[in-house]
Design a protein around this nucleic acid. Structure first.
Lengths: 209, 209
DNA sequence: CGGACGAACTTACTCCCGGTAAGTTACTCA
DNA sequence: TGAGTAACTTACCGGGAGTAAGTTCGTCCG
């Protein structure tokens, strides 16, 4: 009854770890809804019911807060895709399963997607590096898969493998953005299938020359 | 001699068209160097030797100015790639030639690249639409190429074609970013060749099922 | 119980930048 | 030569990132 009707739980103090989780949860939601640019630190502070400097004390800067969201989402996404890939019987199936998992995860966590990649990607410095980290993790995954599929006697062309990995990463990324903006996008399975058809023969040939 | 040594040409008034070109040139340069976020309107104004509201009068907003840069660069890039594609003898060669042209142009105009795509892409509204325009132009180009290669009796699967086009667009975009950040990137020819090898068989197969 | 001490938290700013209202200066043409 | 207009400026606003300095709450020791 301090003011009107609100404040049923008087919002006591919490210990740092709990407050950090609260802030992070709100930030993930709001960044997801409004994008990086569209979100102000005051918005997040208000949503948690806390003052702005507290967030600065815990996360250092707007970038810091965004990075923290990114890290958490990246872990989930990577695990999800990696699990699918590992569960596959052979390389061909692993590729398909990985694609499906990727698109499926982003369907199931639309707000995660915009935080991760879409709108409001940052310019300079630490931010670019961080989103690259997400990408690089996938590029490593893809490179590994390609390398595993190589006949052992063949001298590996490092450039070539990186070109392949970046191509695939770029294609999946773009497709994800497209799907998220299209009214009735094709299913994850359909997209994965087509992508598989597009890439598989070429990949096989390139591994065997 | 008004102040110290500068201002040798007393910066008289110019007519609108000339001033607009001056502003646009400075903006392309500065956006290219520092990215969208890193550039303030005061920076551009100072570089031209003019006051900020004048830029607003001519270009309306920061987005407007950036869009104008984009439009000009887009035209150049599209023409360059389209020329290469048109000059090719058959579809297979057109694909390769298009890739080479794309990477070559971005090698030759590094600042154009950062203005076009790389850092400081915007979030909401008109900006996203505008950068999409660049992409969509290429997606149309690719779709057309794919469609032309289809046997006339085959029922076209619109989704499938769009998936292909977005994949290719995403792959080339990502590769371009990677090349621009890598110390000694493989040549445009090498990248184009590998991409061609990766995609061509799949494209052929998909057109014929 | 009580009071000291540190962690949790806030008020009240600063500065920077996109954007604008209103006015001034220089050129042109009758 | 002076009226009209295009080119241009000064001086401001509002909002959002970031911060300095202080205040309140919980806890643990005597």
């Amino acid at each position: 009854m301090t003011s009107t009707t609100e404040q049923q739980s008087p919002k006591r103090r919490r210990d740092r770890a709990a407050r950090e989780r609260e802030i992070l949860a709100a930030a993930e939601r709001i960044f997801g809804e409004r994008g990086y640019q569209g979100t102000s630190m005051d918005d997040v502070a208000a949503a948690v019911g806390v003052s702005k400097p507290l967030i600065y004390q815990y996360y250092g800067s707007k970038d810091g807060l965004f990075l923290a969201c990114l890290a958490s989402l990246r872990t989930q996404l990577l695990e999800y895709v990696a699990d699918a890939v590992m569960a596959a019987a052979d390389v061909e199936d692993a590729l398909y399963a990985g694609f499906v998992a990727w698109f499926q995860f982003l369907d199931d966590h639309p707000q995660a997607w915009s935080v991760l990649i879409d709108e409001g990607m940052l310019a300079a410095g630490p931010m670019a590096a961080a989103t690259d980290e997400v990408r690089n993790a996938f590029i490593d995954l893809i490179s590994t898969m390609v390398r595993l599929n190589l006949p052992p006697d063949r001298p590996t062309d490092a450039d070539e493998i990186e070109i392949l990995a970046h191509s695939i990463s770029g294609a999946t990324e773009r497709l994800a953005i497209w799907r998220s903006r299209t009214p009735n996008p094709p299913t994850p399975q359909k997209v994965a299938r087509t992508l598989q058809d597009l890439l598989w023969q070429g990949l096989k040939t390139l591994s065997q020359n």
